[in-house]
């Protein structure tokens, strides 16, 4: 009997939930806003699916239905990726420690 590959993916999923649980509890509360913007950015790795959808089929009929949805999804995910990482960077650059001489 072979194990269905789905079970392996499910194992990855469940274990990742636990990793997420412990990692997120260790995030300092003052960084909760950057946490949200960066989780936003990384969840846009869904762009992987969008690219596959956009390039599906042969290249002559690139603008049939399912490709168009893929292209739109690429743009939306790209807004999130660039916007999410850059705004996180901008926020994190503002967090400064007290200067000694003050």
């Amino acid at each position: 009997m072979e194990i269905d590959p789905f079970i392996f993916r499910l194992s990855i999923f469940i274990l990742s939930i636990f990793i997420g649980y412990y990692v997120v509890w260790s995030v300092t509360p003052s960084l909760h806003t950057p946490l949200m913007s960066v989780t936003n950015a990384i969840s846009s790795v869904i762009i992987v699916g969008a690219i596959i959808a956009g390039l599906a089929g042969n290249s002559d009929s690139i603008f049939n239905n399912s490709n168009i949805f893929g292209f739109l999804a690429i743009s939306l995910a790209a807004i999130n990726i660039f916007g999410g990482f850059l705004v996180t960077q901008r926020m994190l650059a503002m967090y400064k420690k007290k200067k000694k001489d003050k």
Binding site: S44, F69, A73, I79
Partner: peptide, 27 residues
């Protein structure tokens, strides 16, 4: 901004699901 970005992730997921439904061979 964060709320707006969430909506985009949601919509992107919907769009990918639609194209997977319409063109399952590609996936």
């Amino acid at each position: 901004l964060v709320a707006g970005f969430h909506s985009l992730v949601g919509l992107a997921a919907v769009l990918v699901a639609i194209s997977a439904f319409l063109n399952p061979e590609a996936f």
